[in-house]
Amino acid sequence: MKNKLVMNKKIIFIVTFFNCLTCFSQIAKTINKLDIEHQKCLDNVNNNMANCTFEFYTKMDNLLNTTYKSIKLKLNKTEQQKLKKMQIVWLKKRVEYFKKTEKETAEELDGDNSSQDYKMICTNENAIFVKNRIIELDKIYRK
């Protein structure tokens, strides 16, 4: 009876472990797919590059939200609180980073902060910042 219980626990652990690996490797595949789609959109001369970048940012932001929620569901209450605190700290960093990006981009464009180029550059930098957070979460919680 005891051996059967130990064996059942091992089986549950192995199934859960491989399920988590599949989930997190899916994040990397999704990011890669979004990167490829974004580049194809930018390469198509018939597309508006700014729209491609705005769409890329939106998809990355949605993926971050999905990733966060997916990770949170797999954690106990204490770990969920830790994740939430980490995310709040990151959100504050995001606000500061976005402001810094806007300022630096405007300076590079001689003070122009209303052009399509300005908006596209800022949005692209912001998308990369969000993408890096997804990758960071994936590394931290890939168990």
Rank of each mutant, 00 (worst) to 15 (best):
L42K: 04
R142M: 06
E125C: 04
N46H: 05
T58Q: 14
E37S: 05
L73Y: 00
C20I: 14
I71F: 01
I134K: 08
T16V: 10
L73Q: 02
N62H: 10
L21M: 11
C23Q: 15
I27F: 13
E108M: 11
Q26G: 13
K139G: 14
L109M: 12
T58A: 12
N132M: 02
K72F: 04
I36V: 10
Q87F: 03
K103S: 13
Q87R: 04
E136T: 08
K2G: 07
K9L: 01
L137Q: 13
S70F: 01
F24G: 06
N48A: 12
Q87Y: 02
I135S: 15
K33L: 03
S70L: 08
K9N: 02
Q39C: 00
F18G: 07
D117R: 15
W90P: 00
V89D: 11
D117I: 15
D61P: 01
Q80L: 04
L5I: 09
I128S: 10
N46F: 03
F56E: 06
C20L: 10
M7R: 05
K69A: 04
K9Y: 01
Q26C: 11
L5Y: 05
T101L: 03
Y57N: 06
E136Y: 04
I134M: 11
V45N: 07
Q39K: 00
T22I: 11
A50R: 15
N8Y: 03
Q116F: 02
K85R: 13
C122M: 02
C20F: 07
K77D: 13
M86S: 14
T67C: 05
E107D: 10
M49T: 07
Q87T: 08
V15T: 09
F13I: 01
T16E: 14
L5E: 14
K40I: 00
